[in-house]
Amino acid sequence: MKDKFVLALVLIFSLTVFSQQPKLKDIFNGRNLNGWIVPTNNIWWSAENGMLIGKSDPEKKGSILWTKNEFKDFEFETEFRFGEGTVDSGIFIRNDKQQIQLGISGALKRDMTASPYIAGLGYPVEAHNINRILKPKDWNTIKVIAIAGYYEVWLNHIHVMSYTSESFIEQGPIGLQVHPNNEMTISFRNTKVANLK
């Protein structure tokens, strides 16, 4: 029943997209962390030269930077660039149990960019042709659409993944991650979101 409901939502959304493109709004202003919930004693996140930079701390505790706003159905788009170290990051969808991976999976020891990580399931599906599409030393664009538990991802404007989660949260913030136990940096820019109604 839940799957049929999600499928119906997806079909309605698809018809809407063809008739009207969602209006993306900036959620990073390029100058500071306004609009984000900044961790206490923040040493992970900074804004420099129009970029949002995540960097591991000396003790490798890691961090998640959450939006202040919460979202139900949404389209999220950002450019990202891997920096130093072993980059293990992600885009969290409404909570810290479901994300779209960016970089190396700590569990699988290989790049799983654009694949969904679901707590308790690991990576239920793998994004297609990432080794051909991803630019490891340059800027990449990723777009994530989340409609209830239905997730779609485009990497550098190429559709690479669809997945339906049965354990999704209906509403919550969007998060960016610096994974624990890693030395790494990752940069984001042109970070935008649109509510899908």
Rank of each mutant, 00 (worst) to 15 (best):
M112Q: 10
D3C: 00
N195Q: 05
F5G: 00
S14E: 12
I93F: 10
V38A: 06
T185W: 03
S167D: 14
A47H: 10
N49P: 00
D57H: 04
I145E: 13
W66Q: 00
R132D: 08
F188R: 11
N195C: 03
D88E: 08
D57N: 15
S162F: 08
S165V: 03
W36H: 02
Q171A: 09
I158R: 14
M51F: 05
I37K: 13
R94K: 14
N95P: 13
I158S: 09
M112R: 06
T16A: 09
K23T: 15
L11F: 01
V178A: 10
I27E: 01
F18L: 12
N42K: 02
Y150V: 05
K97A: 12
F168N: 08
G50E: 05
S14T: 13
S14Y: 03
A119H: 08
T141H: 12
I100C: 11
S46F: 00
W154D: 15
V153D: 13
S165F: 03
M112H: 02
Y151L: 11
E70Q: 10
I147H: 08
F82M: 12
G54V: 08
V87D: 08
R31E: 05
N29A: 06
N156Q: 12
G120C: 07
N129M: 09
G122M: 11
T141Q: 13
Q21Y: 01
I91T: 09
N34C: 05
G50S: 08
E79Q: 15
K4S: 12
K23G: 01
V160A: 01
L134H: 04
I12E: 11
I142G: 07
V6E: 10
P173N: 12
F92V: 02
I93P: 04
